[in-house]
């Protein structure tokens, strides 16, 4: 039997990761954002039905992001915080995905998502080693889908979305409205976005709010104050103007829980009061893949899933 004991990452890639972590710590140190650590294992699981947590034999869940405990710190008065965490998602394996991966998550008290997008752009420029002059394009979700997919994501009927989705997927996948929108966005929007440009898409459909605030936009449509950053066809970050309403949060959790235990600690913290803030999660492996111009996540991991 041959055993692949060697790393999947080159020495250059290992060094790039070390440099990247150092740059992040220096960036936040300069800006007086405090580094924190929160538990990897928790009694509560993530609520997002599209993310499957891993569970240990003693009934603890491995975190899929450090979001919930970091919000409890915010409620306790931590002020601005960040964390570089290793997170775990069952089944997310592929050329660009590893079930265990590195996430940078940070929160800014008193900020909204627009102000946070500007900071995300600053950090992305440093980590991707881009010029100060690199273009930044900020588009509303609706505007972007109209421009690149030729259809209005809010005004179109379910049938219109389904017809375009089926055309993209090649067959009927029996999806919800949001499911078809995801198909359309990943097939038509992401590949068409301008290259070498930091593209922020914001104001998502309210049905895709997750843990973001919602509001009525200028057309009276309810949108989620959520954004995503794309760089050369891949998604690098996902951020929110954070929902602080404990009642609304419980309602969303209960809709999504699907048998998983609610994070009562988080709900109690929100009830005690969370400061208005914006938060974002950034995929560090993706950043490294762009920095090293590789399409395979294995190239930036010391040992990928198959050799772990």
């Amino acid at each position: 039997m041959t055993t692949s004991w060697q790393p999947t990452a080159s020495q250059t890639a290992l060094k790039a990761r070390a440099d990247c972590n150092r740059q992040i710590r220096e960036f936040f140190h300069r800006r007086q954002v405090m580094e924190v650590e929160t538990p990897v294992l928790s009694v509560a699981a993530v609520m997002d039905p599209n993310i499957e947590p891993m569970q240990t034999s003693d009934q603890r869940f491995l975190h899929t992001s450090p979001e919930y405990p970091m919000k409890r710190l915010l409620c306790a008065g931590s002020g601005d915080i960040y964390q570089i965490a290793r997170v775990f998602r069952r089944g997310e394996a592929g050329q660009r995905h590893n079930p265990e991966f590195s996430m940078l998550e940070w929160y800014r008290v008193g900020w909204d998502h627009h102000r946070l997008m500007a900071e995300v752009a600053d950090l992305a420029r440093e980590l991707l080693q881009l010029d100060e002059s690199t273009d930044v394009l900020t588009l509303e979700y609706q505007q972007a889908v109209i421009q690149y997919c030729g259809l209005d994501p809010f005004a179109s009927t379910d049938q219109q979305l389904e017809a375009l989705g089926i055309e993209c997927a090649g067959h009927d996948l029996q999806l919800s409205r949001d499911g078809w929108l995801d198909v359309i966005v990943s097939h038509l929007l992401e590949p068409a976005l301008p290259q070498n440009t930091l593209v922020f898409i914001h104001d998502f459909p309210a049905s895709q709010a997750a843990l973001a605030k919602t509001r009525r936009n200028h057309q009276g449509i309810e949108v989620a104050e959520r954004f995503e950053l794309f760089w050369n066809g891949s998604e690098l970050a996902n951020g929110y103007h954070e929902l602080t309403d404990a009642e609304e949060q419980r309602r969303r959790f209960e809709l999504e829980a699907n048998g998983r235990p609610l994070d009562e600690h988080l709900l109690a913290a929100l009830a005690a009061g969370m400061p208005a803030c914006a938060g974002v999660a950034m995929g560090l492996d993706r950043i490294l893949m762009h920095r090293l111009s590789t399409r395979a996540i294995a190239d930036v991991l010391a040992f990928d899933w198959s050799r772990a």
């Binding site: 089944g91 997310e92 592929g94 949001d178 499911g179 995801d182 966005v185 990943s186 959520r226």
Partner: peptide, 23 residues
């Protein structure tokens, strides 16, 4: 696939930020 024998050439896992995962 659709009643026809096929050979898989390539399989890419795609996961939007929030939402359904696809291949």
């Amino acid at each position: 696939m659709d009643g026809e024998p096929c050979s898989i050439m390539d399989n890419e896992y795609v996961k939007p930020g929030k939402g359904q995962a696809f291949n």
